[in-house]
């Protein structure tokens, strides 16, 4: 029994390290987003707490910890309470097979990329639970729109991931990185198209501008998390920014060679690539206007899905003819 318990202590330590990384990364990304938006809009952003407002997120966390829990009358209590779990737990579990470095990975599942794609899809249930359970019209509209948007963009996202699986011939995250030792995948024209499709779909999956219709603050207040306050609201925020990190880290792994780089440590290259993609997505968010619902759904089903299907077939043809 003791041997059984002690054999899982390394796993526990890795898990705690992942939790620490998630908390720090979310706080850093929230600060970064506010600073980038301020620079783009010719403002200063948070400046008072610490140098350049570096501790603003810490102050926000303490504030949210001390806030009252307000549950709206008529809310579906169980569903309303469970929603933050369904949104945040998948974001934590997705770190299970995130290849931070050549040896920095919690557990290299042999179905890694499929596992990440499927576990992060669960959060759409949480989003819809939050929308339904809140007994609020804005929440319900936001939850419905979010569910429709996330499932629509899931299809081109998975089809662009499929192109990488065909190129590498494996589902393991480390295997995909090692398959790129001869050249990063996005340098091939067909994979580059998949990369662009992936970035567009990932923007929609994380509910960010130009696809932020579920949270459109000028029409829906805050979408599905309108009725959440205090730590529950904080959990939705942590999930949102952790998902942003996950889609960017997966993009870095699948298309930009993951932790491969000219010198060690490999973790540096992984984080550099992931945060570069995050900065790019933030730049897009604060530059583009919001698209309309019909434009967004039409773009997914009438343009991205056919293009991705053709791209999969072209990739297959190139690989078969080459041998």
């Amino acid at each position: 029994m003791i041997g059984f318990v002690t054999s899982y202590i390394p796993l526990l330590l890795k898990g705690l390290a992942v939790l620490g990384f998630i908390a720090l990364s979310a706080m850093f990304l929230i600060w970064l987003e506010r600073k980038i938006s301020a620079k783009i809009q010719n403002r200063l952003g948070p400046m008072m707490t610490g140098p350049h407002g570096a501790f603003q997120s810490v102050a926000d966390t303490v504030k949210l910890l001390l806030k009252e829990n307000i549950m709206p009358t008529g809310a579906d209590t169980t569903i309303w309470w469970l929603a933050p779990f369904f949104v945040t737990v998948p974001a934590v579990v997705a770190f299970l097979c995130m290849p931070f470095g050549s040896h920095f990975i919690v557990h290299d599942l042999n179905v890694g990329i499929l596992f990440i794609c499927s576990i992060t899809s669960i959060s759409v249930i949480g989003v819809f639970m939050a929308g339904w359970g809140s007994n609020n019209k804005y929440s319900l509209l936001g939850g419905m729109r979010s569910a429709a948007q996330i499932v629509s963009y899931e299809v081109p996202l998975l089809l662009s991931v499929l192109v990488v699986i065909m190129e590498s011939g494996t589902l393991s995250m480390q295997g995909i990185v090692r398959a790129q030792e001869l050249g990063w995948f996005f340098l091939k024209p067909n994979v580059f198209i998949a990369f662009v499709i992936y970035l567009i779909s990932a923007t929609a999956e994380t509910n960010r501008v130009p696809f932020d219709i579920p949270e459109a603050e000028s029409e829906l207040v805050a979408g599905y998390h309108t009725e959440y306050s205090g730590m529950k609201f904080a959990m939705f925020f942590v999930a949102e920014y952790t998902n942003l990190f996950i889609v960017s880290a997966v993009a870095a792994t699948l298309f930009l060679g993951g932790w491969l780089g000219p010198f060690r440590p490999s973790m540096f290259w992984f984080l550099l690539k992931a945060y570069t993609i995050i900065a790019f997505l933030m730049w897009i968010r604060w530059t583009l206007p919001r698209v309309r619902m019909d434009q967004m759904m039409g773009f997914a089903w009438k343009f991205l899905v056919p293009v991705s299907l053709v791209n999969v077939l072209v990739t297959g043809w190139l690989l078969v003819v080459k041998g």
Partner: peptide, 20 residues
């Protein structure tokens, strides 16, 4: 490992909710 991580995620959120 997967079940362990799911439990860890639940514990993470529960701890934050309990402190709050």
């Amino acid at each position: 490992v997967i079940i362990f991580f799911i439990l860890l995620g639940i514990a993470f959120i529960s701890a934050a909710f309990t402190v709050s």
